[in-house]
Design a protein around this nucleic acid. Structure first.
Lengths: 336, 336
DNA sequence: TCAAGCGTCCGAAACGTTTCGGAATCAAGT
DNA sequence: ACTTGATTCCGAAACGTTTCGGACGCTTGA
């Protein structure tokens, strides 16, 4: 591979000036710049990133830190959308993105901070980590700029990006109320997740605004998992057959609920209405097509990268960004 | 960040020996190794990858080269499975994976080879590129080891990994024949793709073995796209209502076909049977659940990484690997 | 004539690591 | 006492880039 020295030798211009020409610095004449660039193209010169990173003590890489690739992205392809959104932004800025998961931490016995420092990584987008993970806490407390998706922690160098989960849950539940439902169960996510609490608040708000009392028996947590939602639905529908609607805090849980209802031979939506959350690709193909709150995960990944770069460049940035959501009415809600 | 020099200073051991101790070379005493490793852990030392890459002229990064993130991975999450399989393998070996797409080539005006050289990347897994892409050809012709998924080109340093597409297609079509279908249409993929030709051969073989003549009117190409499959199905079912079964070379095309059949009020599978290919997550949720040929894309990504590393290390490797497939019988095929 | 300023240039050091070539120490064998 | 070999060590160069500090030549204005 040709280096900057080759260009220097070929043109008779010093290495210093070649470097400055390539980087379009001001104190190099137009003529020199042109000559350098021409020769560079001719011999197929590409800058050696390792050398650049070494001397500048930084790199054009962003980290995408996830809990676990396989599991979380199984069928819903939320993580995939996040990846491709962030990737496309990074690409447009000439940045690389490198992924880390909790399993890489354990496999290599290094913390996220170490993993990042090792590669001179400039910043990280974080999604789906347990907020009590010590490595997570170390990361947000470090001097590495972080953009957190769907969770907020007061760290030195962090910002949060998410949709308005409370309002979104409110919209979903209110939609059910507008269809005259009163006995509305909720299948919520992992109790430790920030979004779980937010969405629960939306649920509560919608009910209380409508003057409907809360019923402990209708409130359940299913860890965002399809199979737990399945079991839970089986249980609550036999214990509380007065339920006429279920709000699921994720589409995958709605899928589990739907299967359970089908198993119990309860008609959806005629006997029980269903609202999901996320709008995963599956949602529109279910029978019936699922009414759900849509989130733009691709946009989230893209915007996360965008904000991260702003932080890295010390440009002004807000510390919280709210992305729009939308209630998608399909066929899983029935007017009583 | 602490460096190797800090360890040297703290222990009074030369930089050379510290380096060799850290890398567990043979000509350093056990006592020294222990001391070095202890101090390294104490001060939280992590090796600087850039410096390592620079001096060794290689890196612990593998490339994953894709046609286009967004489009190809839209709903089927095949690409996601590939990514996570390859990622998990890389992770277990302490390697990074960096993704490139055709759009990165154009955005940065660099060929895949340049993109790889720039980062000292040791090898690449390639999926979904057009085989006539000049950058693709340059890549497989270069000295960079490549593992090609689902396509074969005689390059210097390449190997191919795929399922037995011909046999798989044969199995699918034969399954229809065993259910007494004779007028079997095929919705095939992009004409330039290697797998398209392979699957077509399987289709032909199944028919000829059963003594069923080929019918040009039953053979169509839909570029693996749902909407084209939709339009095509609309067309062929009105022009050739004698068709009782359709073999789709991808599940996404089967989804398109299914929508078209539903629009035409043709019952699946009672009036027309359907077999897909890939077993995407959607398949089992369709109405009726789709009978299809399953491929293990996660395993493909994992194995691709595995074989790539073998090539990089100059260990023995075959130049073609066939992964198993399986016909998954669900509810979209009807016995005539 | 001199100083100041500008535009353009260059040498050399630095980044953190690996590795080549050589060397010191010690025990064992002659 | 001398060689031999094994074991353990070290200095210095090298990888390709950026950048600091300085320098040269030219024009301009006093």
């Amino acid at each position: 591979m040709p280096t900057i020295k080759d260009i220097s030798r070929l043109t008779g211009i010093s290495v210093t000036q070649v470097s400055r020409a390539l980087n379009n610095h001001s104190d190099v004449s137009q003529a020199t710049k042109e000559r350098v660039n021409r020769v560079a193209k001719e011999i197929g010169y590409v800058a050696n990133r390792s050398a650049q990173n070494l001397v500048t003590q930084k790199s054009k890489s962003l980290a995408l830190i996830l809990s676990n690739l396989e599991k979380s992205g199984g069928r819903d392809n939320i993580v995939y959308s996040l990846i491709s959104g962030m990737y496309h932004f990074a690409e447009s800025e000439g940045y690389e993105v490198v992924m880390f998961t909790t399993s890489s931490v354990h496999q290599r016995d290094k913390s996220f901070v170490q993993l990042c420092k090792e590669q001179n990584i400039s910043g990280a987008v974080v999604n789906g980590l347990r907020t009590d993970d010590p490595y997570y806490l170390e990361l947000v407390d470090s001097d590495i700029p972080c953009v957190l998706i769907d969770s907020s922690v007061k760290g030195k160098e962090t910002m949060t990006i998410s949709c308005d989960n409370k309002k979104a849950a409110f919209d979903a539940v209110n939609h059910l109320i507008q269809h005259n439902h009163k006995n509305i169960a909720v299948l919520n996510g992992r109790t430790e997740a920030t979004i779980t609490a937010d969405r629960f608040q939306g649920y509560v708000l919608a009910l209380t605004e409508a003057g409907i009392p809360l019923n402990e028996k209708f409130i359940h947590y299913c860890d965002f998992q399809e199979d737990i939602a399945y079991e839970t639905t089986l249980k609550i529908m036999t214990e509380s057959p007065e339920i006429t609607a279920i709000f699921c805090a994720s589409d995958m849980m709605a899928v589990g609920a739907l299967k359970a209802l089908r198993f119990l031979e309860i008609k959806v939506p005629e006997q029980v209405s269903l609202v999901g959350f996320d709008d995963i690709p599956l949602a529109e193909y279910l029978m019936p097509p699922l009414t759900t709150v849509s989130q733009d995960f691709y946009g989230m990944g893209y915007e996360a990268g965008h904000q991260l770069l702003k932080m890295i460049r010390h440009e002004a940035h807000k510390n919280k960004i709210i992305l729009p959501h939308k209630l998608l009415e399909r066929k899983s809600v029935f007017m009583l």
